[in-house]
Design a protein around this nucleic acid. Structure first.
Lengths: 244, 244
DNA sequence: TAATATGTGCCACTAATTGGCATATTTGTG
DNA sequence: CACAAATATGCCAATTAGTGGCACATATTA
């Protein structure tokens, strides 16, 4: 390549974004100087960055210049499956709270995060989102009777939920009766701060609701299950819950 | 460059990551084939990607291969100032709920998101984080008496909070007395779902707590203020609140 | 109208990228 | 233990993608 180019293209483009982030307004001259690069190359870089989706805005004419719209950027954030879900659930919770300080932003962030993933992953994420519901704060009664569930029970259940594995549970009903069940954890619902599993009960061949802290113990199985139509699990609860 | 190279480096490296995300295991041969590139170039790309922080793992020897650790990736997510804060607040809220399904992930995501920003921004973010507190769910009394604040009041207050501008407010005290005050919104605290502003009250020259839905109206000013030591605003509340 | 910005097409120069080859190095298997 | 299958690396010649300079277009403001 031509004279004076020491760093490589990629690095230089990152520098440009960093510059634009650190100060609100730049002119191309100032940037050329700062980066020690030619005007022509700068303009090419800017064009490439814009094409790549970096929200760079430029104003022509006297008093014009170059600026970055979202001046805060996340680069290269690698998350695993359950971290993505946590992130989305977290935003959904915040949204459901209708906390005025945040609510405007939260929805758009949720969508932006979702669409920041590659398309194939978006479909997977979207499927999981449909299986998680967030409602209102639980009633005082429920909150008072709520106790945090055991960690092992919890991880078994979430595994089972994500991997679509049937699971055996020992459950303490609200009438204080202990029963053993084989269930398909179809959906998850949150009524602050209590989680419920909306399940298909194999033995009773019907939909059942299980409060997570009332599940006493679990036993994994290798049997898999398929997602059922959500209608059965929602029965008039549509107004109470929202998908994440 | 040498034969058969149609796309550019950057694009090819993105393709590599996409491949690794779409399937759990690849061998270099398979990747070379798929990308129509030479082995040598592939290895160089992999090295570069690793250096750039992409969590690629490779196992040598028979049965070895190349894989991506976090197979879900966000690329190029551009957020503005308040969106970043919303995201972090949202995660903090989730964390404070101690919702067992998420709590393990949430803390690590929070940190990963924070550190995914350029260093200069990390400092700014960290300063704001110190000014936002999250406590427990408000008491039933408070929840019952809570009404969502007016949007205009809200946006004035958040502007004032982020830009460090003093602001005049008309406040309805818990004794139902209406007073006018000039305040510095130093900190924000959440007791689910109620937000409080921890402020320096100019006229009374003391720290005061304002419940957001009791602020009747606001009037912006151009006066700026400085962050004060948080001690005055916390007074024994340290155990009740956590920074986001 | 002049001054000051960004945006673009063209072209020659060249250094950064590429691919091939040889060679380590690691690991599992018969 | 020897062999096979994988990743990892150094070197070098070929070449192309990237660069910079120049001229010109276009937009905006004073």
């Amino acid at each position: 390549m031509a004279k004076g180019s020491l760093r490589e293209k990629k690095e230089r483009q990152e520098q440009i974004v960093d510059c634009l982030r650190s100060e609100a307004y730049w002119t191309s001259q100032k940037l050329c100087n700062h980066l020690n690069t030619s005007y022509r190359t700068l303009m090419r870089d800017l064009a490439e960055l814009k094409e790549a989706g970096v929200p760079i805005e430029s104003e022509r004419g006297r008093g014009g210049g170059i600026s970055l719209v979202g001046r805060w950027g996340i680069r290269n954030l690698h998350l695993n499956n359950s971290e993505v879900i946590s992130l989305l659930v977290s935003l959904a919770i915040t949204e459901s709270i209708k906390s005025p300080i945040l609510v405007d932003n939260v929805r758009s962030i949720k969508n932006r995060i979702s669409s920041a993933f590659p398309i194939e992953q978006q479909q997977v994420i979207s499927k999981i989102r449909k299986r998680i519901l967030v409602g209102n704060i639980a009633s005082e009664n429920v909150i008072r009777s709520y106790s945090p569930p055991r960690q092992s029970v919890l991880s078994d259940l979430t595994d089972s939920f994500f991997n679509l594995n049937k699971i055996e549970i020992r459950y303490l009903s609200s009438k204080n009766e202990i029963t053993d069940r084989l269930i398909e954890p179809q959906m998850l619902a949150l009524e602050f701060p209590v989680w419920y599993f909306l399940c298909w009960d194999e033995l009773r061949q019907d939909a059942r609701l299980f409060r997570i802290d009332r599940i006493l113990s679990t036993k994994k199985t290798n049997m898999t299950f398929k997602i059922r139509r959500s209608d059965a699990f929602m029965e008039g609860a549509h107004e109470l819950f929202n998908n994440i």
